[in-house]
């Protein structure tokens, strides 16, 4: 979806890195198996995190070498966890297609043609996923509707808009039966959703100011030429730090049996590093940030606000 939820790979052991890759490839494989080849293109880091969180309370599933279409004839190590991936794959399809549907409403007919085409491409996959998780599909549509109403009203409340999105992400753990597991998982995901929304809003601020598109930060703060002042950026960093702390505190309440280092890394190190990259306008360029995105040919620059 966004790609903001990822671990800091430069401080990750090779064993954990392999586990992360295997989970990512496992999700890709599950999408392909359940929703057809084209659904493999929906695989993303954010939903890999969801898999790690949901399956972290169980023993780690086995992994084996599987065919990888991106490699032609080559194989990659994939986690084989049919039960674990089943709901995560369905949620991936629902979220991506609902996002496409939401985009269509904001754009003119001709500008929305690529999204219309993609939506058509994933129509059957969406129907299948929505049949599997009808309550999640309904929740996503309902919260996106709320979000749209807030956008149309040009709401200056970043809390209310982030809340609508965060509730969708928190809904990804609504089917966990045991409250002792469900409540911390929902809180980790709620704060992750809030973080995602704020990071995405800041990342899009320049473009949105230029195109006159709604962005909560435009109405809450006073951006000049699409940029916030240092003081406003510091305040926004405080808000995202709060989400990191609350997500970390919730994570500590989960009896994790697998992926604990990966999850801690993503929350405590990945989130702040990603936000620092977004804040320094380097996330999209993926230029020289330690463990985030691609390596720069010029070497690593630590952006302002980077927490070590």
């Amino acid at each position: 979806m966004f790609g903001y939820v990822r671990p800091r790979t430069d401080v990750l052991s090779s064993e954990e890195m392999d586990a992360y890759r295997a989970a990512y490839c496992g999700l890709c494989r599950a999408l392909g198996k359940q929703y057809g080849f084209r659904a493999r293109f929906l695989v993303n880091y954010d939903m890999t995190f969801l898999y790690l969180l949901r399956s972290g309370v169980r023993d780690r599933a086995e992994a084996k070498r599987c065919w990888c279409p991106a490699r032609g004839c080559g194989k990659k190590v994939c986690t084989l966890d049919q039960v674990g991936f089943e709901t995560v794959a369905a949620r991936t399809v629902i979220l991506c297609v609902e996002k496409l549907r939401d985009n269509l409403r904001d754009e003119s007919f001709f500008r929305s043609l690529p999204d219309r085409f993609l939506r058509l491409l994933f129509r059957r996959a969406y129907k299948k996923a929505a049949r599997r998780l009808p309550s999640f599909a309904a929740l996503t549509a309902e919260q996106l509707g709320k979000l749209r109403a807030l956008e149309q009203a040009h709401s200056p409340s970043i809390d209310a808009t982030a809340d609508a999105f965060a509730r969708i992400v928190a809904g990804c753990a609504a089917d966990v039966e045991e409250p002792a597991l469900r409540r911390p998982m929902e809180q980790v995901l709620y704060q992750t959703g809030r973080f995602l929304y704020l990071a995405d809003a800041l990342d899009d601020l320049r473009d949105d100011c230029q195109n006159g598109v709604y962005n909560p930060l435009r109405f809450r703060f006073t951006p000049q030429n699409g940029e916030l002042s240092a003081q406003e950026l510091d305040y926004l960093t405080q808000l995202t730090d709060s989400s990191v702390n609350l997500a970390g505190a919730a994570l500590a309440l989960l009896p994790l049996r697998a992926y604990d280092r990966l999850l801690e890394n993503t929350v405590y190190l990945g989130f702040p590093a990603v936000f620092a990259a977004v804040r320094a306008y380097k996330f999209r360029a993926k230029a020289g940030l330690p463990g985030i995105g691609r390596r720069s040919a010029k070497g690593g620059n630590t952006p302002k606000g980077e927490t070590e």
Binding site: V11, L12, S14
Partner: peptide, 8 residues
């Protein structure tokens, strides 16, 4: 977390 050989 320990740095892997080619994690990046």
């Amino acid at each position: 977390q320990t740095r892997g050989a080619c994690a990046a």
